[in-house]
Design a protein around this nucleic acid. Structure first.
Lengths: 155, 155
DNA sequence: ATAATTTGACTATCTCTGACTATTATATCC
DNA sequence: GGATATAATAGTCAGAGATAGTCAAATTAT
């Protein structure tokens, strides 16, 4: 009991009570718990995997971070609804890409399909003033998500 | 920790919101951010590369400058070029669907992928005044076509 | 015993700088 | 007016520093 991993999991989940998405420094967190940094990876891999409904994004180097995004959906609402909700009326490219990656990891789409989704919502594709891009990206992504799930039902 | 590189990227992108092309002085920008001039090159190389849809031109010596141009589309193979050409700057939904169907017939994309393309360029997805829809649809479709052919090259 | 956890050594990636190089414009000399 | 020197830019590259990732061995829990 009170395994280190459990404590770290608990700690992260408390941080996420407020927001469905947090960013942290792997090394800082490790130091906080007085453990090896790789311990953090272990916790993320075993308790915050896609199967558990989370998406992990990270960046190395100066200013690096680990971002944890909660993707679980309340029972009663479908995954599609959760995703549509997350997309909302406006979404930036990075988050849209994370959703495409999520779909791929969950095997809801193939790799090529994920790439197509990314292409459709990339900043290249949406040639509009930046402020409007996020809004349009959301609309395109919502439509594609709906299509993805329609395919699944039929298949 | 908004990294220096991120700040500079942001700064440049704000400058480019208005125009698809800007000119700046490398040294001035470096001074503005209190960093080494070569830092500017780093940001340009990592965030404004051709892959990111930008072209960099520059000139040294007195009155030198760095010009950043936002590309409208990358180049590709010849069928790709033909298709891109057919798409042009503006395309209606029916024609876009025809191209998706063509890709499927040619086995360049799977059925699901074709459906995804149709979803991305559908009237529903592109929530804009009718006049602008065709233009935007063309941009999205061009980007997706480019992605399709990129997949083919790698596969 | 078996499975889960924890660590540490090694690797990969990203950022930033500084020394050195290349190019262009302008001033100066004849 | 042309050649040459000087100043004003920008480019390149290797290395240091700052993070995060991986994986297998050691440890601990069940």
């Amino acid at each position: 009991m009170a395994q280190l991993s459990d404590s770290i999991e608990q700690f992260i989940k408390e941080l996420m009570e407020e927001d469905a998405q947090i960013e942290l420094k792997r090394n800082e967190l490790a130091q906080h718990f007085g453990c090896a940094p790789s311990q953090i990876n272990y916790v993320l891999a075993t308790r915050f995997s896609v199967d558990h409904g989370y998406i992990i994004e990270s960046r190395r180097g100066g200013g690096g971070y680990v971002r944890i995004v909660r993707m679980t959906h309340p029972s009663g609402s479908s995954l599609l609804e959760t995703l549509l909700n997350r997309v909302g009326n406006s979404i930036d490219e990075e988050s849209a890409n994370a959703i495409a990656a999520f779909l791929y990891e969950r095997k809801l789409v193939t790799k090529n399909e994920a790439l197509l989704i990314k292409a459709a919502v990339s900043r290249n594709a949406l040639q509009l003033p930046v402020s409007a891009k996020d809004v349009l990206r959301a609309a395109v992504l919502r439509n594609m998500l709906t299509q993805v799930f329609r395919n699944l039902e039929e298949g």
